[in-house]
Simulated assay, not measured.
Amino acid sequence: MSFFKAILAAGALSVGLVGCGGDSAPHKGELMRPEFLDPADYRAPGVPATLGDTDPHEWGGAAPARYAVHGIDAARYQGLIDFGKARAAGVQFAWLKATEGGDRVDPGFAPNSRNARAAGVPVGAYHFFYFCRPASEQAEWFIRHVPKRAGDLPPVLDIEWNHTSPSCRKRPPAAEVQREMRTFLDALSAHYGTRPVIYTTIDFWRDNDLEHFAGYELWLRSVTAPPEERYPGTHWTFWQWTGTGVVPGVRGISDVNAFRGNAAAWRDWLARRLQR
């Protein structure tokens, strides 16, 4: 099946998933229900054997499969996720969209976070940042809707240029961006007792001098090259290597991510970073 047909089958043509991604469509409160795809139909070199990719990159020696630990991030676009199947296929963590800006809650977060915990998959929440609302208000909104829960992953700040937003395409200068990031991150650190992870994209990282934004672990998007090539000199912890992955138990296409380390390093990371 072609990539175009795969997207049609997934029911995702109109939602335009890019990175973790914002919700540019009207928020109606219901979960979307794209179709399940079979990873066996989308096997690709360099992709972990239990997963697939509808639009794979030719990775060569820098393939994601060289990492032992992989996980997903998702929003309402994937509908309800069968985390039992996902875990059996090697999914070892999940971050789910919880909030956006200061007035949106993703309806997939509550049911899918419950499903993940029931299946024994470490799960956490991410917030999609909106540049037309103060960071302090966004932090309050996230904290209001994401309870502190022992055993969950640290929260994530998803910060990227949202060029598809119908209401806010503002691009503040780097100094303002970093100041707002600090406000948001400090508030979440104080509330959850652990420092959030920062998810970002190549252009945003470059435009806002995030190479020098110290003190936080990074989750970097790079779907055509390893992070070392796209974010030179930057230490990363998580790598989003595709936005078109096929994962058992997940409807449609999915973002798939690698942890930088082996299984032992992953266990150590969880011991240090899970909420208490």
Results as ranks from 00 to 15, higher is better:
1 M>Y: 03
6 A>R: 10
6 A>M: 02
7 I>A: 08
8 L>N: 04
9 A>M: 05
9 A>I: 01
11 G>A: 11
13 L>N: 02
16 G>N: 06
17 L>S: 03
18 V>R: 00
22 G>W: 11
22 G>S: 15
23 D>L: 11
28 K>W: 14
30 E>Y: 06
31 L>N: 03
34 P>Y: 07
36 F>G: 01
38 D>C: 03
39 P>M: 02
40 A>G: 01
41 D>W: 00
42 Y>G: 05
42 Y>I: 00
42 Y>C: 02
44 A>Q: 11
46 G>I: 00
50 T>K: 13
52 G>Q: 13
52 G>D: 12
53 D>K: 12
55 D>I: 04
59 W>G: 10
61 G>M: 08
64 P>W: 01
66 R>Q: 08
67 Y>T: 00
72 I>K: 05
76 R>I: 07
77 Y>K: 01
77 Y>M: 06
78 Q>S: 08
78 Q>P: 08
78 Q>D: 09
82 D>P: 00
85 K>A: 15
86 A>W: 02
89 A>R: 01
90 G>T: 14
91 V>T: 12
93 F>Q: 00
95 W>G: 07
97 K>A: 14
100 E>G: 05
104 R>C: 05
105 V>D: 12
107 P>E: 13
111 P>Y: 05
113 S>D: 11
113 S>C: 13
114 R>V: 15
119 A>T: 10
119 A>I: 15
120 G>V: 15
120 G>P: 11
122 P>H: 11
123 V>A: 13
124 G>D: 09
126 Y>Q: 10
127 H>W: 02
128 F>S: 07
129 F>C: 09
130 Y>W: 14
133 R>Y: 09
133 R>T: 08
139 A>H: 04
141 W>P: 03
141 W>V: 07
144 R>M: 06
147 P>T: 09
149 R>S: 15
150 A>T: 13
154 P>A: 08
156 V>L: 11
159 I>H: 01
164 T>L: 15
166 P>R: 14
167 S>W: 12
167 S>H: 13
169 R>E: 08
173 P>E: 13
174 A>T: 03
175 A>D: 14
178 Q>I: 03
178 Q>V: 06
179 R>Y: 02
183 T>N: 02
184 F>C: 09
185 L>W: 03
187 A>R: 14
191 H>K: 08
192 Y>K: 06
199 Y>W: 02
201 T>H: 03
203 D>R: 08
203 D>K: 09
203 D>E: 12
206 R>W: 12
206 R>K: 15
207 D>W: 05
209 D>N: 13
210 L>N: 06
212 H>M: 05
212 H>S: 13
213 F>L: 10
214 A>N: 05
215 G>D: 01
215 G>H: 01
215 G>M: 05
216 Y>I: 02
217 E>S: 12
218 L>E: 00
219 W>T: 01
219 W>G: 03
220 L>M: 07
223 V>M: 12
227 P>S: 01
228 E>R: 14
228 E>V: 09
229 E>Q: 15
229 E>T: 10
231 Y>I: 02
235 H>T: 13
242 T>D: 10
242 T>E: 09
245 G>F: 11
248 P>A: 08
249 G>C: 04
250 V>W: 07
255 D>M: 08
259 F>Q: 04
261 G>P: 14
265 A>E: 15
269 W>N: 04
269 W>D: 04
269 W>Y: 15
271 A>G: 14
274 L>A: 08
274 L>I: 01
274 L>Q: 00
275 Q>P: 00
276 R>S: 11
276 R>E: 14
